[in-house]
Design a protein around this nucleic acid. Structure first.
Lengths: 181, 181
DNA sequence: AAATCCATGTAATTCGTTACATGATTTG
DNA sequence: CAAATCATGTAACGAATTACATGGATTT
């Protein structure tokens, strides 16, 4: 039973309690999206597949005349979630356009290379700001895993901001040395 | 002229000098793969498309009876590369299974949560080791952008290893406090 | 009354990996 | 001479986003 990327988030989220597809998407957008995204085009078909495979179970629970299906884990699904959680992580990927541009920055003037670094810094500063907005709500449960993960996100992005700062300083020092030397 | 993800690496690599598709792939695998991967199934078709669009130009230069096409940037391609390099980065994505498992770790025993963290730590320790192997060769050009990016990779992964260490210590302290308290 | 939110779902398109097929050349 | 490397390419498949379509409920 190989779990698809989207199945992993769905099972994990349903492990916290029953939810509709819409609610799963909303939760993902507020939390795991920073390291594990999922769109409607993935979530709804995957919920159907997981239902067919017997890992989740949908119950109709409309709000008024608005139809709505709430999904919960079956015992099988619960077991498979546990098993997956108990396995070492395998997937770790990054797609970082700032890094890519920096990698090719030898083709640029030194001043432009510094500009590239500044832009990368801005991007990560914005990430810190975005995550800090979530923080007050999340800090209600300071011992929880989700809060720990949020802290990681904030501290990691702060680290990158500082790294950029140091990199800029080094480059500027080198530029100055070249001018005077 | 919207550049595809693979077009970005290809143009960047060709900006450092003419290369065959095979050589592009080899370089990517030794360098940008950590933050921008590309496979044969992307590279060869994209080289053809870039050729049709007039950004690159292929020249037959067989080695013996083994056919081989070396690509170089056209002036148009050069210009488009420059323009892209001079624009703020937009794409920044991460897919981190360790983080995802940690996020859902409230469903686990505290001891298991610590295990999850240890596994994440191992993963990043392995990354540090892998990058350190490349370092000696890269450090020949300590002022180059690629070396700077490699340093980022090493230092970033080291930071994560330390973060995991701190997180484990906190959790262990909390566990101990619970036992005695 | 309009805007926003709740809710579900699909179609089109792009992106990306893996595996396969083919064959020459070099190195041990 | 076997294995590794150089070299190009495609087919099958899976993953993912975006946009669209539809419609009820709630809020302003």
């Amino acid at each position: 039973m190989e779990l698809s990327p989207t199945a992993k988030v769905i099972l994990g989220v349903l492990g916290m309690g029953p939810r509709s597809g819409y609610e799963i998407k909303a939760l993902v957008d507020r939390s795991t999206r920073f390291f594990w995204a999922a769109s409607y085009g993935q979530i709804y078909p995957e919920l159907r597949r997981l239902g067919e495979a017997g890992l989740v179970e949908g119950t109709d629970s409309p709000t008024g005349g608005r139809k709505r299906t709430v999904y919960r884990l079956t015992p099988t699904g619960e077991g498979i979630l546990r098993r997956w959680l108990g396995t070492p992580p395998e997937i770790y990927e990054m797609r970082h356009e700032g890094m890519l541009k920096l990698f090719f920055a030898d083709a640029l003037e030194p001043a432009e290379r510094i500009e590239r670094l500044r832009e990368m810094q801005t991007l990560h500063r914005d990430k810190v700001a975005a995550l800090r907005e979530i923080e007050p709500a999340a800090s209600e449960f300071p011992d929880s895993s989700p809060y720990q993960v949020l802290r990681f996100g904030i501290e990691f992005n702060e680290w990158v901001v500082e790294w950029c700062e140091r990199a800029v300083e080094e480059l500027e020092a080198r530029l100055a040395a070249k001018r005077t030397g």
